[in-house]
Design a protein around this nucleic acid. Structure first.
Length: 420
DNA sequence: TCTGGGGTCCTAGGACCC
DNA sequence: TCTGGGGTCCTAGGACCC
């Protein structure tokens, strides 16, 4: 059995922990730049506000006081997430953290009675110890556990935990689940399925295997298998990432080459820092640019350039210099850019990097590694006190709008101590 | 005026090989 | 007019997730 633990309206719940006055109110959390809605309280969902709604469309509701907006505060959410996860990890032999607000608990070999005790306990413990409400879905496969957790979340009668542990319950649950709510069926697939007469998860699960395979190939078969109660989704998520991306939208569009170059340098330096944090090195550095896709009155351009490094690297100097070279090949001054980013790919373990035998300046590499080490130490406060001249004077998150930002309630103290 | 960021996996098709 | 067949590997783009 799997238990999927899902934090309810996670970002909103995090804000509520430190502002109890938000309880019972219609609240939304906004993306970077206060651009669009990324989390909603039940009350704001009930008002019809959709995920991804641009903020300007609901600004009047905020002004008139019927809706409260919070800028996103990912430092806070990350900290509360790790507190929740450590409580979950302590309760079961094995946990797979699936996202910032979700984890699968592996309950294999346990009696249902025991599972029920653990789950009930976790709902109240996480609420009491961290202040975050969670819902739990229990079922024989991950996809069914997701279905179960939706019921747990939607109907208070379940008191936070829903079990799909018999075939009867499975069929009932699937018949009440719209196909678009199924894990793995997204916005492109669900309209297509509906045209084929598939309205609910049960409609899909009842189609013959061969038809599913022909129409929806491997990923369709996987979902179909899981809905029918047999494991189709693999066990473990890899512990190390395979690519790392740092990107931001700009508050205002720009064509300024120097401005964009320094932004890209910031993103590249941030990627290098993330690489070092998980002891990885990148074999490839890519840069991408976007014009404003919502402005159909303006010419559109969204290039991407990749630079292959002769030797996998993670120093700020090397990653930034590769990113700048890539940028030079795609930058065109006649466009107005709204967003840029850097992706590092082909990651390898940093202490197993292949060094060429000939034509390689080992001394330079050692110096760069040493410089990175010192930079990381000095910058461990989170403020970029030491940076390359190519970077901007601030940090890569500077210049983005966040008019409704909460404080770093749970991490600010650590920061002050470290700076001292 | 104003529309996020960061990942994974899969597939089709091209390049290349014999 | 007419131009093999069958593999593998890589990559870009598209789908999905939160």
């Amino acid at each position: 059995m799997y238990a999927l633990v899902d934090c309810n309206n996670f970002f909103v719940s995090c804000e509520r922990v430190f502002r109890p006055g938000l309880e019972g109110k219609a609240v939304v959390v906004l993306s970077n730049n206060d651009g669009c809605v990324v989390a909603r309280s039940n009350e704001s969902k009930a008002m019809g506000i959709k995920m991804g709604t641009p903020f300007y469309q609901i600004r009047d509701m905020v002004r008139s006081g019927v809706l409260i907006a919070c800028s996103s505060n990912y430092t806070l959410y990350g900290d509360l997430s790790s507190r929740v996860m450590s409580i979950l990890a302590d309760a079961v032999p094995k946990i797979e953290i699936y996202s910032v607000d979700e984890a699968f608990l592996c309950m294999s070999g346990m009696e249902m009675d025991r599972i029920a005790v653990i789950c009930r306990d976790l709902v109240s413990r996480v609420k009491k110890w961290v202040g975050i409400p969670v819902s739990i879905g229990v079922a024989p496969t991950k996809t069914l556990a997701k279905v179960a957790s939706h019921f747990a979340k939607r109907y208070p009668g379940y008191r936070g935990v829903c079990y799909v542990d018999t075939d009867e319950k499975r069929l009932k649950a699937l018949s009440l689940t719209p196909i678009s709510d199924v894990w793995g069926i997204g916005r492109k697939l669900s309209p297509r399925m509906e045209r084929q007469g598939i309205r609910t998860a049960l409609d899909f699960a009842e189609r013959p295997f061969d038809w599913v395979k022909r129409e929806y190939m491997l990923s369709g078969v996987r979902t179909w298998t899981e809905l029918n109660g047999r494991i189709g989704v693999g066990e473990e998520l890899p512990e190390k990432r395979k690519s790392i991306c740092t990107s931001r939208s700009f508050a205002e569009m720009t064509s300024d080459a120097a401005e964009i170059a320094s932004r890209v340098s910031d993103f590249a330096a941030k990627c290098a820092q993330k690489l070092r944090q998980e002891h990885s090195a990148a074999g490839k550095v890519s840069v991408f640019l976007y014009t404003n896709r919502f402005r159909d009155d303006l010419p559109q351009y969204s290039p991407c350039a990749s630079v292959v490094l002769p030797v996998a690297a993670n120093s700020a100097q090397e990653i930034v210099s590769a990113a700048r070279r890539g940028l030079d090949t795609i930058f065109r001054p006649e466009y107005m850019y709204k967003k840029a980013g850097v992706i590092v790919d082909d990651l390898v373990d940093s202490d197993s990097v292949q060094i060429p035998i000939f034509d390689y300046d080992m001394d330079l590499r050692r110096r760069q590694d040493r410089i990175s080490e010192v930079m990381d130490k000095v910058n461990s406060s989170g403020r970029n006190l030491v940076r390359l001249a190519a970077q901007r004077s601030g940090d890569y998150t500077d210049g983005i709008r966040c008019d409704y930002r909460s404080r770093r309630y749970s991490t600010a103290l650590d920061e002050i101590i470290e700076v001292k």
